[in-house]
C-alpha cells in the first residue's frame, strides 16, 4: 500500500473506525487513542497490507485493541450514564433512535460489535467473522439474538410510530 493509499484510508475509514470504537467503549479519549493505535499499526505494516484489505485490517485491529482495552479496564460503564450530547452527537435523535441506542448499550459486547459491523459497515458474516475471530455461525447467531433483543427493547411498533 502506498502512502497515498494510506492517507486515503485515513480519510475514508477513520470516522467509521472511531464511531465503531466509541459506540463500544463509550469513551471519547480512549476511542481516539485506539483509532490512532490502529492507524499506527497500519502505517507500520503499510508495505505488507494491500489497499483492498486496509479497511478490514483497521477494523480487525481496532476490535482487538478494544477488547484488550476493555479487559484491561474491566470497566462496565453504563451507557445511560453517558450523555449522548457529550459524544459529539449534534443531531437531535428521535425517540426511536434514543431507544435504539439505549438498547445497543445493553447488548452483550460481542453482539454489539457484530451488529454494528453489520449495519454500519455492511460487512458480511464472513468478513465480520474474520474481524472478530468468531465463526460465521456465531456471528449469525449474535446478530439474530441482537435483533430480537433490540426489537423487544424498543417495544411494539404501535408504541413508537
Amino acid at each position: 500500500m502506498t502512502v497515498n493509499e494510506y492517507n486515503y484510508c485515513v480519510n475514508q475509514h477513520a470516522d467509521a473506525v472511531y464511531r465503531f470504537v466509541l459506540k463500544n467503549i463509550r469513551d471519547r479519549e480512549k476511542a481516539r487513542d485506539l483509532v490512532q493505535d490502529s492507524f499506527e499499526k497500519l502505517w507500520i505494516n503499510v508495505r505488507e497490507v494491500v489497499a483492498e484489505k486496509a479497511k478490514s485490517y483497521l477494523f480487525t485491529t481496532a476490535y482487538h485493541k478494544m477488547i484488550d482495552q476493555t479487559r484491561a479496564d474491566k470497566r462496565t460503564a453504563a451507557w445511560e450514564e453517558v450523555n449522548m450530547n457529550r459524544l459529539g452527537h449534534s443531531e437531535h435523535y428521535s425517540d426511536l433512535m434514543e431507544k435504539l441506542n439505549e438498547g445497543i448499550s445493553r447488548l452483550p459486547a460481542d453482539q454489539r460489535s457484530v451488529i454494528m459491523l453489520r449495519d454500519y459497515e455492511g460487512y458480511s458474516y464472513k468478513e465480520i467473522a474474520d474481524i472478530t475471530s468468531l465463526s460465521e455461525v456465531q456471528v449469525k447467531v449474535y446478530i439474530y439474538r441482537a435483533r430480537v433483543f433490540l426489537k423487544e427493547y424498543i417495544g411494539s411498533i404501535e408504541a413508537l410510530v
Binding site: 470516522d15 467509521a16 435504539l100 426489537k151
Partner: peptide, 17 residues
Amino acid sequence: GFLLTRLTPEPIACPGK
C-alpha cells in the same frame, strides 16, 4: 418491528484525523 432494529451510521467524526 425488526426492520426498526437496523442501525444507521451517525454523523460522528474522528477527532485529530
